[in-house]
């Protein structure tokens, strides 16, 4: 039995800050994927809500990957309604990562590192991830999904994943109140999405400060060509700038087919 089992909308609401007023909280014991549930509700026209699950049976990771989602983790999908221009939606990956880092530091004292474009690491192992799904056209929604291994016990992850995964509980031996954590996370996401509109440089600066990607050697496949080089920065849209070893040109990585870091 973990503290994760005590998640309730009433308890979360107690801790929400002013910027989250009017937000509807939907808490379920189990769902395939909080993002899928939030997308279905968004397509039905529902606005300003968050879906929180105690566990997911088919949590979505990158591409076709499944995000292991046992009890004790935080699985949140929040709709974002604001005036951010559509072309800047990808930047929300960095926004969410910064908000998650802030929440984790404030709530647990742990300092995480961020990997471009959407991963959260603690002590070199994956602690959380972000998956944003959106639609442009008559329906028009943004669903920001985030998974964080807060009170997850390491034994609850599949054996083949354990080496690369971390959880706050696994690292500290301490359980943290998931309701306070979720409330802080929602408030922080809404705060940073507003900052993204008005002062996106602050998001870029904060992300860059916490990034393990910048300054490291990376490799990507772009349009069938492998680009290897040094990650030198992110541009104002959040795209990674890589100095190509072969051409010495700085390439903008938009759609990462990630081969992984290359050690030199």
């Amino acid at each position: 039995m973990t503290v994760g089992n005590t998640i309730s909308s009433l308890e979360i609401e107690k801790h929400l800050s002013d910027n989250s007023r009017g937000l509807q909280l939907i808490v379920v014991d189990e769902t395939d994927s909080t993002n899928d549930m939030a997308k279905v509700l968004s397509k039905e026209g529902k606005k300003r809500f968050a879906v929180i699950a105690k566990r997911q049976t088919r949590g979505k990771g990158r591409g076709e990957h499944i995000w292991a989602s046992p009890d004790g983790g935080i699985y949140l999908s929040l709709t974002i309604e604001n005036d951010l221009p559509k072309r800047r939606i990808p930047l929300l990956n960095l926004t969410l990562a910064v908000a998650a880092a802030e929440t984790i530091l404030q709530t647990t004292g742990a300092t995480v590192s961020l990997k471009w474009p959407n991963d959260i690491y603690l002590h070199g192992r994956k602690l959380g991830g972000i998956l944003i799904e959106s639609s442009t056209g008559p329906t028009d929604y943004i669903v920001a999904g985030i998974g964080i291994n807060l009170n997850s016990e390491m034994e609850s992850f599949p054996p083949e994943l354990r080496e690369g995964v971390s959880s706050i509980y696994g690292e500290t031996g301490l359980f943290y109140d998931p309701n306070l954590f979720i409330a802080n996370l929602i408030s922080s996401i809404l705060k940073w999405t507003d900052i993204t509109i008005a002062e996106s440089d602050r998001v870029i600066d904060e992300w860059s400060r916490l990034s393990v990607t910048l300054g490291s050697r990376v490799a990507f496949v772009v349009g069938g060509r492998t680009i290897r080089g040094l990650a030198v920065g992110v541009d104002s849209d959040g795209f990674l700038m890589v100095e190509d070893d072969d051409t010495h040109l700085t390439e903008k990585i938009v759609s990462p087919n990630i081969l992984g870091e290359v050690c030199c």
């Binding site: 959106s134 008559p138 795209f239 938009v254």
Partner: peptide, 11 residues
């Protein structure tokens, strides 16, 4: 873009 999946709908 950046692993963000954006569906485009018919206007």
């Amino acid at each position: 873009a950046m692993k963000l999946m954006n569906e485009i709908e018919a206007e």
